[in-house]
Nucleic acid binder design. Structure first.
Length: 430
RNA sequence: GGGGGGUUUCCCGAGUGGUCAAAGGGGACGGACUGUAAAUCCGUUGGCAACGCCUUCGCAGGUUCAAAUCCUGCACCCCCCA
């Protein structure tokens, strides 16, 4: 085998729990194994939390194992109660289908599907679950689940004995589906190891038990820690929402900035969990962070690495250029298209081009129109306090009139109030 | 059923006839500092055709040259006694 995957995962802190601590290291190093992780289609894109799982799968592949990525078309219809304090709303079938398509696209991006022996496999559990009749499922699968064992699982226990919320039969049955997936993948692909977040332990062990009961085979499980910040919150959530992998939902710039702003206390874990940087480089970054925290070398390396990985070279380039501009570089000689990319997250307003002719448009009116100022008085104040910028040049004079020569590109002008609040004005011809 | 207190600008909260666009604090915003952090400091914080004008102090009327402030009615909230 190419590398000692278990030792690497362990060094990175990616192993939370396994079903066979003694056995797994040698087993993984002595042959190519098939490993599976499931992904929930709760949205049409994966987010930062599931990225950790996906990257673990990728690590397995790079170490010579065969990864199976499962999109939960069937399980998504039911809803995993693990880690949820309340009953879920079921997703509509159409949404689900759309989500599966989006997620499969992302899974393909991280795994190699064309590398011979250990090419990745993409499956959707709807494909085999749909064929099951309810009666068959109860006889073949349900019979193997003692309810008293199911009741003891954390995911179920945490929902029982509460007055405000319970658990439906549907969600209660969820673990049977996931357990059966493991058995099915074992039969069809000789999959023997299931990996998941630490909240998946109950579902994974359920699958291992089921395989033993149905086919007398021994399977294995490994869980990873959840990606949490040092104050115990889920990573990848900001005030403005979740950080997604798809550029439609989270622009490369916003993605880059998320990592660029990770707290010192968290960035070490992120480097270990989410990058494939060498141990030496990570240790060197740890040292540089202790010695010169203000240089943010760890954050920058992390942001560049992940943006490149998720959005590619061009995404990274856009993010970099946007970063320069968002932090004050004067904006000139750009095209409408480039500005559109860079300011993808920025609100805009259309105005007739006519307003730039003659006298021009006063800076105060422009701020008010763009929404950066609540009123003209507010805009006036912003200028007087030195907080108004056009194309990142500070506007000193309250009397300033904007004309066509203030355009940053063919038809767009970039307004800014304060350090970070931007807005675009687009001037269209009549 | 009786008695008392309250309702103020984004929030809390002062103001009890003119000097009130309304103290103070919080929040927010701008500036400085800084590591794109935190803290700190300074400034701003109803609108506008702006040394002036208009709108705002629960709602609707009234007294007055002048009302957030006084009177009447209404709505809602709180407390005490039955």
């Amino acid at each position: 085998m190419k590398a000692d995957i278990f030792a690497d995962l362990s060094w990175r802190g990616l192993i939370h729990q396994t079903t066979a601590d003694e056995f797994l290291p040698n087993w993984l190093n002595s042959g190519s194994r098939t490993v599976y992780i499931g992904f929930d289609p709760t949205a049409d894109s994966l987010h930062v939390g599931s990225m950790l799982q996906l990257l673990v799968l990728r690590r397995f592949q790079k170490a010579g194992h065969r990864p199976v990525a499962l999109a939960g078309g069937a399980t998504g219809m039911i809803g995993d109660p693990s880690g949820k304090s309340e009953e879920r709303n079921l997703l509509g079938v159409d949404d689900l289908r759309k989500n599966i398509v989006g997620i499969e696209k992302q899974l393909k991006q991280f795994l190699d599907f064309d590398c011979g022996e250990n090419s990745a496999v993409l499956v959707n559990n709807f494909d085999w679950m749909r064929k099951f009749s309810y009666l068959d499922f109860l006889r073949d699968v349900g019979k193997n689940f003692p309810v008293n064992v199911m009741l003891a699982k954390d995911s179920v226990k945490s929902r029982l004995g509460r007055d405000d919320t319970g658990i439906s039969y549907t969600e209660f049955s969820y673990m049977l589906l996931q357990a059966y997936d493991f058995v099915h993948l074992n039969r069809q692909y000789q999959c023997e190891l299931q990996v998941g977040g630490s909240d998946q332990w109950g579902n994974i062990t359920a699958g291992i038990d089921l395989a033993r009961r149905m086919h007398s085979v021994q399977l294995y499980g490994l869980t990873c820690p959840l990606l949490l910040t040092s104050d115990g919150k889920k990573m990848g959530k900001t005030e403005s929402g979740t950080v997604w992998l798809s550029p439609e939902r989270t622009s490369p710039y916003a993605f880059f900035q998320y990592w660029r702003n990770i707290a010192d206390a968290d960035v070490g874990n992120c480097l270990r969990f989410l990058t494939e940087l060498s141990h030496d480089e990570i240790l060197a970054l740890d040292e540089s962070r202790a010695a010169a925290p203000h240089e943010c070398q760890s954050q920058i390396r992390l942001a560049e690495y992940l943006t490149q990985l998720v959005h590619g070279d061009s995404g990274l380039a856009t993010a970099r250029r946007a970063t320069d501009i968002f932090f004050g570089a004067v904006i000139e000689n750009l095209s409408d298209r480039e500005l559109g990319e860079i300011f993808a997250d920025v609100p805009g307003k259309e105005l007739p081009r006519e307003s730039l002719r003659g006298e021009g448009l006063s800076i105060v009116d422009a701020l008010a129109e763009s929404g950066l100022a609540k009123s003209k008085g507010d805009g006036r104040r912003t200028v007087q306090q030195g907080g108004a910028y056009v194309n990142n040049r500070r506007v000193e004079n309250i009397e300033t009139q904007l004309t066509e020569k203030d355009l940053a590109s063919e038809a767009v002008m970039v307004l800014r109030a304060g350090k970070k609040r931007y807005a675009l004005l687009r001037f269209r011809d009549e």
